[in-house]
């Protein structure tokens, strides 16, 4: 079966669920709102992160989007119907992942640019340079996409959006706010810590902005592969 029609079908499924469109807009709104609030009260030691702090909140929406887009196809007899239309399960899941990744990346990139412009306005001379800012905006788009894919993979393994969010949200909040300042440990290679290096002006750990995102990509790929494997082996 060709890939494009399957991708088209998965995109129709996403754009026809109002809750998913709402979650997607929440990525933009939450990130920009919290970044704006944070920028006004920032201590300005890390100008780039002062602008992009809202990503910690926007990522919750991105994760919810990825998990829900997958789990909506695991409700009732939905998966059986989807797989009777597309029996090649790997192809179906690949299309699903791409139908999640493309809109999150587009929204994430717009979110990054809006956040950057707003942050520069609020912080003026204390803000990041345009070069740093563009790195942050691009990183914002890539990071949110990878987190949505991580959630999508996990949702296919757990076959439940609620269970996925039950695992990921406490994890993200715990890692960011409790182990947050521990550096040079295993915390550095956790998916959110590694991926968020790109949002900081400077870094002192082993991972830079792009190698950090690569680590997050490995997490997302592992989750997607586990999801695809579970989908292929289990009865629908």
């Amino acid at each position: 079966m060709p890939f494009r029609p399957v991708l088209h079908a998965e995109w129709i499924k996403i754009r026809t669920l109002r809750s998913l469109l709402g979650t997607l807009s929440a990525v933009l709104l939450a990130t920009v709102a919290f970044s704006g609030l944070a920028a006004t009260g920032s201590d300005r030691t890390d100008p780039l992160f002062s602008v992009f702090l809202g990503v910690s909140f926007g990522q919750i929406a991105a994760v919810a989007f990825g998990a829900t887009a997958v789990s909506s196809d695991f409700r009732g007899g939905a998966l059986r119907l989807a797989l009777s239309a597309v029996p090649d399960r790997r192809r179906w899941f690949a299309a699903k992942a791409m139908a999640i990744a493309l809109p999150v990346f587009a929204v994430g990139l717009v979110t990054g640019l809006v956040t950057l412009v707003l942050g520069r306005l609020l912080l003026g001379a204390d803000g990041p340079t345009w070069a740093q800012g563009m790195r942050g905006a691009l990183g914002c788009g890539v990071y949110l996409t990878l987190m949505a894919l991580l959630a999508a993979g996990l949702a296919a393994v757990l076959r439940s959006g609620t269970a996925t969010l039950g695992v990921l949200i406490p994890f993200l909040l715990t890692v960011s706010f409790v182990i947050g300042d521990m550096s040079g440990s295993v915390a550095d290679v956790l998916p959110d810590r590694a991926g968020q290096v790109v949002l900081h002006t400077s870094w002192d750990g082993p991972l830079g902005p792009w190698s950090g995102l690569a680590v997050t990509a490995v997490w997302a790929a592992a989750a997607l592969l586990a999801g695809a494997r579970s989908l292929r082996r289990r009865d629908a």
Partner: peptide
Amino acid sequence: RVGALLDADAAHGSRTGRDHLLALAASNR
């Protein structure tokens, strides 16, 4: 080639009937 009805709850409650069928149709051109 093959049309099947397995479960009456295969369609997502928040989607319209037409959108449900549009997605299915798109997957098989």
